[in-house]
C-alpha cells in the first residue's frame, strides 16, 4: 500500500532519510526512532509534503507530492502543535472536512461523529488556544480521520496524553487497524510502541535499521549481556548473593557506595532471582534499573551487531 524504494532525502548537506526501501501493509505499524532519526522526514515524504531527493515513494501506486487523488485516501496527524488558535475544536475539524470536499451539512455531521469518537464532543466548542496538549492531540486525530481515509499517519501522537488518554488513543488505533486501515505511528519511546504493535520500522540516523516483529528483535538483544544497576544500602551482601548466579557475567561496585552494576545474560531470569533475594533473604533493594532497556540500546545492539 505504501512503498518506498531507495528513498533518500537531503536537506542541503544534511541527510534526513538515507536509501530506505520498505512496504507498509494494512494494520498498525510503528515507526520507531530517536529524535532526528528521520521519522518526520519519512512521514512528510509519504504525505507528499516533500519529494525524495532520490528513489521513489508511492501510495497505492501514485506519487503523493501535491497529488489530491492521494490525499483522498490519506489522513495525517502532524507532530506540530500548531492550529488556527482562534477556532474552536469543532470549527477546526469542520473547516478541514469542508476542505476534504464535504458539503456543509455532511461536514457538520461528520465532525460530530469524529469528535465523539476521539472523546472531544463535550469540549469541542472551546477555543483551541485553551486546549491542553492531550485535547490538541485528539483534535488532530479527528481531523486526520474526518474523511475516512484508508491510510492514517500519526507523528508522535501520544505526546502529552495522560495514561488513560494514551490507552484510549491506542485502543482507537487498534480499532482503526481492525477496520483494515493502514495506520503508521511514529514514536521515539520504546515501551509506548511495545504496547501498541509488534510491527515496527526502526530508523536510526536516516537509515532503516530493522523491520518486522519488535519481540523478535528484543529476543535477539536479550541474548547479549544487559547492564543492570541495583541500588542498595548493603552492596557487599548484594554482590555476595548475586555474583554466584549463572547468568551474571560481571559485577562492579558503584563509587557512590550504594549501588552495584552488573552485566547479565537472560535478564528475565536475573530479575526473577533478584526478586527472590529481596523476598527470601531480605536483601535491601531501593531501586533497580537497566540502562540497556531503552531505544538507544536497541540501536546500539543493531548497529554493533
Amino acid at each position: 500500500m505504501i512503498t518506498l524504494t531507495n528513498a533518500s532525502r537531503w536537506y542541503g548537506q544534511v541527510i534526513g532519510l538515507n536509501d530506505v526501501t520498505c512496504e507498509i501493509q494494512p494494520g498498525l505499524t510503528a515507526l520507531l526512532g530517536m529524535n532526528g532519526a528521520g521519522k518526520s522526514t519519512m512521514l512528510r515524504l509519504i504525505t507528499g509534503q516533500i519529494r525524495p531527493t532520490t528513489g521513489s515513494v508511492l501510495i497505492q501506486g501514485q506519487e503523493p507530492f501535491a497529488n489530491p487523488e492521494v490525499y483522498k485516501h490519506l489522513g495525517y496527524c502532524p507532530e506540530i502543535d500548531n492550529f488556527y488558535e482562534n477556532m474552536t475544536g469543532r470549527q477546526f475539524v469542520q473547516y478541514l472536512a469542508r476542505l476534504a470536499g464535504f458539503s456543509a451539512t455532511q461536514a457538520k455531521a461528520l465532525t460530530i461523529e469524529m469528535l465523539q469518537r476521539v472523546g472531544m464532543a463535550d469540549r469541542a466548542d472551546k477555543r483551541i488556544k485553551g486546549y491542553s496538549k492531550g485535547m490538541r492531540q485528539r483534535i488532530k486525530l479527528a481531523q486526520a480521520m474526518i474523511h475516512s481515509p484508508e491510510i492514517i499517519l500519526l507523528d508522535e501522537p501520544l505526546n502529552g496524553l495522560d495514561p488513560v488518554g494514551r490507552r484510549e488513543y491506542i485502543d482507537l488505533l487498534h480499532d482503526l487497524a481492525l477496520e483494515g486501515k493502514t495506520i503508521v505511528v511514529s514514536s521515539h519511546i520504546l515501551y509506548e510502541v511495545e504496547s501498541m504493535t509488534k510491527s515496527i520500522l526502526l530508523l536510526h540516523r536516516g537509515r532503516l535499521l530493522a523491520t518486522g516483529d519488535l519481540r523478535v528483535i528484543r529476543g535477539l538483544i536479550d541474548k547479549y549481556p544487559h547492564r543492570v544497576r541495583v541500588e542498595t544500602d548493603d552492596p557487599r551482601r548484594a554482590a555476595q548473593l548475586l555474583s554466584p548466579l549463572p547468568n551474571v557475567v560481571s559485577l562492579r561496585f558503584d563509587p557512590t557506595g550504594d549501588a552495584i552494576e552488573l552485566e547479565v545474560r537472560d535478564p528475565d531470569a536475573f530479575y526473577q532471582a533478584l526478586g527472590n533475594f529481596v523476598l527470601d533473604e531480605n536483601l535491601p533493594v531501593s531501586a533497580f534499573s537497566s540502562p540497556d532497556n531503552n531505544l538507544e540500546s536497541v540501536f546500539q545492539y543493531l548497529v554493533h551487531s
Binding site: T47, A66, P68, E69, P78, G101, Q143
Partner: peptide, 14 residues
C-alpha cells in the same frame, strides 16, 4: 504558523 500542513494534505489542488 506551521498550519500549512493542514492545507497541503487535503484533496484540493494546490
Amino acid at each position: 504558523q506551521k498550519t500549512i500542513v493542514y492545507l497541503l494534505t487535503r484533496p484540493v489542488p494546490r
